[in-house]
Write a protein that binds this DNA or RNA. Structure first.
Lengths: 128, 128
DNA sequence: AATTGTATTGACGTAAACGTCAAGCTTGTA
DNA sequence: TACAAGCTTGACGTTTACGTCAATACAATT
């Protein structure tokens, strides 16, 4: 029972449009099966799309996301390729760690503002 | 001794172009002083620009960053405005927390890949 | 069989975020 | 004073990531 989806079904499930799914396909991010000319998506395609959307939420471009996804198709025969993969994985992690720092700095500042505002309102006898 | 910068000086310091600084100005993100017609930036402008660039690294649009920056210019007289500010600050924090979850999920996956690759290489007697 | 509903492939449009001239103005220096 | 260096404001170009038709084909329903 391998659930299948049409473009529009999957689009709705993911909160995007069919156009987006087709566009991503032209960009090589996805390659669903076909029933004749009609696209047929599987749960695996859906999972892949969720990774893509997460990448977008993190601010990566489609090109970067494609590289990220390529990290998954591991050819564990070629040692040299494995080494390259490892290096890229570590680069990515470093990027994400840097982003985490930016994120925490932003959160810290917002907390400061929050406290100040809450304080000001308390002074004026307003409930937050 | 309030250090001042020209467009190009500040651009170089921040690793961006003068065009970007001018563009952000037209978008209302910045408003440096002028010496005649020439733009003059202060350390304060530079600090503001660093906030903007961090916002970009986090994947926010210039419009969103502008809203973010507006959270700083607090008018602590108007209680209603303070309440609104507080609400927005909390929304932003929620967004960032969601992003942190995405980020950690991505890092976790990369760690998995890293381990698998390292394991494969070790099996083949390759030093990582 | 005729109609209605989806899907498909172009092709063109668009908003965001700048890049890249072009033309003119000011200013420090030889 | 001539001129090179740096600044200014347009104006148009470009890339990314889709939106929006249009024309056509296939599929399902009456």
């Amino acid at each position: 029972m391998d659930e299948l989806f049409t473009v529009n079904e999957l689009a709705q499930e993911l909160g995007i449009t069919a156009r987006t799914l087709r566009f991503y396909e032209t960009k090589g991010l996805l390659s669903p099966q076909r029933a004749g000319t009609t696209r047929v998506y599987t749960k695996r395609d859906r999972a892949r799309m969720r990774l893509i959307l997460r990448g977008k939420r993190l601010g990566f471009s489609l090109a970067e996301i494609k590289e990220y996804l390529d990290l998954y198709k591991v050819d564990n025969e070629n040692v040299e390729q494995q080494r390259l993969l490892l290096a890229r994985v570590r680069e990515r992690m470093a990027e994400l760690e840097a982003q985490r720092e930016d994120l925490e700095a932003a959160v810290a500042e917002l907390k400061d503002i929050e406290e100040q505002v809450a304080e000001t309102l308390k002074t004026k006898g307003v409930t937050t």
